[in-house]
């Protein structure tokens, strides 16, 4: 009895999450997952807003910024990194455009390119970490620098995992189609979010 009950609710669940289902199911089981992702991203952006506010306050109350003895920040590499990350958002968008035309190959290719750009970004970030000339606990600026960029880097990693997961799942025939492409859409939304956070971060951390 109980087993069957669980199965029943499982089936509805699977229908709601129906990747493999034909497009016709969309009306019957309205899909609220994108809405859920948007809510999740609101929560995520509040963490970053909190951290940014903390950074700006530290900055505002410090007599000197960055505190005395902080090495000059190099702008070239993070600048290039920024350009790579921003363009990757457009590249990824092509992937979603492809799947809307039922072009799974296109999805895979564009997403692959995005993932590659993400990896380049992360490598650039790591390279920068090793060449800043300051450590995590040197002063309030260096600490916020590492924690903010590191926390963002974790998000890039997570976004990368989402992209790879979508590519992996797309290997199964008919998983994504013009009618059912929640996975790619969610990954793209997340990636754009990570991208926007970086832009703000770059502005307040490097340029301000």
């Amino acid at each position: 009895m109980q087993g069957s009950a669980i199965e029943t609710s499982q089936t509805t669940l699977d229908m709601q999450h129906g990747h493999g289902h034909a497009g016709g199911h969309h009306e019957a089981h309205p899909d609220h997952r994108i809405f859920g992702i948007v809510l999740f991203l609101i929560a995520e952006s509040m963490i970053f807003l909190g951290l940014f506010a903390a950074y700006l306050t530290f900055r505002a109350v410090s007599p000197e910024w960055p505190p005395e003895g902080t090495p000059e920040m190099e702008l070239l590499l993070p600048g290039i990194n920024t350009i790579i990350l921003i363009s990757s958002s457009f590249v990824m968008n092509q992937g979603n455009a492809a799947i809307k035309k039922n072009n799974v190959g296109g999805l895979r290719a564009w997403f692959g390119a995005t993932a590659l750009m993400g990896v380049v970004f992360l490598c650039g970030q790591l390279y920068e970490y090793f060449h800043t000339g300051f450590g995590l606990t040197d002063n309030i600026f260096t600490s916020t620098f590492y924690v903010l960029t590191g926390f963002h880097g974790l998000h890039v990693c997570f976004g990368l995992m989402l992209i790879l997961a979508v590519m992996w799942r797309s290997l199964k025939a008919d998983r994504y189609s013009s009618a059912s492409h929640f996975g790619p859409e969610a990954a793209e939304l997340y990636w754009h979010f990570v991208d926007v956070v970086w832009i703000v971060l770059f502005l307040i951390l490097y340029l301000l």
Binding site: I42, A43, E44, M46, I47, F48, L49, G50, L51, A54, F58, L136, T137, N139, I140, S143, T144, V147, F151
Partner: peptide, 23 residues
């Protein structure tokens, strides 16, 4: 909108506690 900000504060606190950052 508010719980994530607490998470942010606790992450910073955790760094102060464990790594000795000066936040």
């Amino acid at each position: 909108v508010s719980t994530p900000v607490l998470a942010g504060a606790l992450i910073l606190l955790c760094f102060d506690l464990m790594a000795g950052t000066p936040f």
